[in-house]
């Protein structure tokens, strides 16, 4: 059932992708810690409903960029526009997802998801629906500690969608998962994204993941975008196609070439 709805909306109705997305623009964004410049004059644009992957070596400022966009940190210079208006304080549209799911261990799975649903809504119902979307409808009453890493990330995804996020900031969300679970989660993220149409920035160190999921890929190095490419492949993407492999190779070469 999950499959069919997804295929319907994703493949037949791509225009609906702008429904739940918000656009993001950074203008001359700068972030320094002490005298270290971590983000440098970064101008970046994310279209509504677009999924952009950010790849780059460890320490190049990817997490910092996401924290700035989420409003958890303040830029040292420059600013961020969300849907045309300048961001100050926390970004109300953004939901962050980290490598660990950051679930509250003392709340049941369902309560963790319900906590994100809008106030004065039928939170329990929304949470149950969201859990069903990620295939965890039977686990709602359990403690997060009994779930596997992949399941916990599913709960984190359910939490994000139950809050009707218009912008998902994914900071290497699958980095700690085994290869098989990661593949599963990638297609889950793609499905949810096609269905809900939120905008998303996916930080990943897995170039294949970036090519498989993103509309556009940005390569970051020392706080700047050094390379950018759209991914002109149809969804669902065939990872064994020559185009896929070629794009992957190109990006890998760029990363290794960057210093």
């Amino acid at each position: 059932m999950l499959e069919t709805t997804l295929v319907d909306r994703g493949a037949i109705e791509p225009a609906s992708k702008t429904r739940g997305g918000v656009d993001v623009q950074t203008r001359g964004l700068n972030k320094t810690f002490g005298d270290r410049e971590v983000i440098r004059a970064l101008d970046l644009r994310l279209n509504p409903g677009e999924l952009v992957a950010v790849v780059g070596k460890s320490g190049c400022g990817k997490s910092t960029l996401l924290r700035l966009i989420s409003g958890l940190d303040e830029p040292s210079a420059g600013w961020i526009e969300i849907a045309g208006s300048r961001l100050s304080g926390l970004n109300p549209h953004a939901r962050l997802m980290f490598q660990d799911a950051a679930l509250l261990p003392w709340r049941s799975v369902q309560e963790n998801v319900a906590l994100a649903a809008p106030r004065r809504s039928r939170r329990t119902q929304i949470a149950a629906d969201a859990l069903e979307h990620v295939g965890l409808q039977d686990r709602g009453r359990e403690w997060p500690s009994v779930l596997s890493g992949g399941q916990r990330q599913r709960v984190a995804l359910a939490r994000a969608i139950s809050s009707n996020a218009k912008l998902l900031l994914l900071d290497e969300p699958l980095g700690a998962l085994d290869a098989l679970t990661r593949l599963e989660m990638q297609s889950l993220i793609e499905r949810l994204w096609l269905e809900r149409g939120f905008s998303a920035i996916l930080v990943t160190h897995d170039v294949e993941e970036a090519v498989a999921l993103a509309d556009r890929i940005l390569l970051m190095a020392s706080g700047q975008v050094t390379f950018e490419t759209t991914v002109p492949l149809d969804r669902p993407r065939d990872r064994s196609s020559p185009e896929f492999t070629e794009l992957k190779e190109t990006i890998l070469e760029r990363i290794l070439g960057d210093r």
Binding site: L72, P92, A94, R95, F98, A102, L115, R159
Partner: peptide, 11 residues
């Protein structure tokens, strides 16, 4: 992390 998560989700 948990505190930031809570803030992001509007607690």
């Amino acid at each position: 992390r948990l505190v930031e998560m809570g803030r992001v989700y509007g607690l």
